[in-house]
Design a protein around this nucleic acid. Structure first.
Lengths: 185, 185
DNA sequence: GTTCGCATGTAAAGAGTTACATGATTGT
DNA sequence: ACAATCATGTAACTCTTTACATGCGAAC
């Protein structure tokens, strides 16, 4: 039974066979908004997946280049991926939100010090939203060979967009409240 | 310079002096939606805060009860809290979202297996939203002595509410897409 | 000749969670 | 008697991140 990291790699390898290096690159260009992996995670995980016969490695030699170990899913790997997709998902509530923590104790700060932090939070989500929108616009054009996958990828983009929009609204409301609290009126 | 945990405890102690046990209890009843601490974190952190003279402990003896170590902020503690509130916030993007990971590879699963997972995600947020609403309704009534803090606490509730509403919308849209994909039509 | 990109990995440090240890009182 | 609550802490463990090690080729 692979770990969550294992399933992430199995999923990525379902797109096409890849090396550990490629996996890192692709993850950073695709699912990075909700999933990150480093080499320190990828290489040992690939080894474990191979030991479980869920992936197979093949060596590619290139003259005057480092060898590449290209991994592809085995039939058992496909099976494990499908089995995982069917399992109920443990939703981990992401705890630890520093800005909320600060706002919770906001009474002891001035609006002038809190407002920029809220504005920055807003800017981050505004920027993210534009990134999501841009990606959505190019998705089909950039990856015509994955047309069957694109609708699913769009779902994950919409998730991010919804959150960004919600956060922008919240920032505006929060900024208004903070401004009102400092208003002498 | 305290850690993030340290600031969370300083903030809590700004409400009123407390023991480590009380801190855990109060955190679990107030900021648990965006901040969690266990005893394994609280007690060592209190020790560190005391070593930095940001808090002071006083011993309370109770006949036939364990001693209580009640901590309160020192003047330096108040200063550290205010200084932290002014610092720019490092927004940590919470990475690792298993449901999105599954949906990303959703092509290899049937809508029938993905839909319940989306529905469960929706139910969680629906439930959370109702909790937030209930808390908001009782907040002032339950804590009249913290009337000056309540507006800030409400801000953090609204944050949660916005996210829940966004997620409910997203789930509905996602469910619709999944149903359409399995429709023979 | 120095840096950047390809390519694979290991080791150590840091953070976080969970389980355990203790011990008294109060309620069932 | 037995479980639960109050109360403080430690130890172990896992999980994650970061830094390091290596080496070649191509570009600047």
């Amino acid at each position: 039974m692979p770990s969550q990291h294992g399933y992430a790699l199995l999923g990525m390898l379902s797109l096409h066979p890849m090396s550990g290096y490629d996996l890192k690159e692709l993850i950073d260009r695709s699912i990075r908004y909700f999933w990150k992996e480093g080499y320190g995670q990828i290489y040992p995980t690939l080894k474990a997946l191979e030991a479980e016969s869920l992936v197979m490695r093949e060596v590619e030699h290139h003259a005057g280049r480092p060898d590449r170990f290209v991994y592809h899913l085995t039939e058992q790997g496909w099976e494990a991926l499908r089995a995982w997709l069917m399992q109920p998902t443990f939703t981990i509530t992401p705890t630890r939100h520093e800005l909320l923590l600060k706002l919770y104790f906001g009474r002891h700060a001035s609006a002038a010090t809190l407002l920029p932090q809220v504005e920055q939070y807003r800017a981050i989500h505004e920027h993210l939203l534009q990134q999501y929108n841009a990606i959505e616009g190019h998705l089909l054009h950039d990856h015509p060979e994955y047309a069957a996958d694109v609708p699913y990828w769009v779902l994950t983009l919409h998730h991010g967009q919804q959150i960004c929009r919600a956060m922008i609204l919240w920032c505006d409301e929060t900024a208004q409240m903070l401004r009102a609290s400092q208003d002498p009126a």
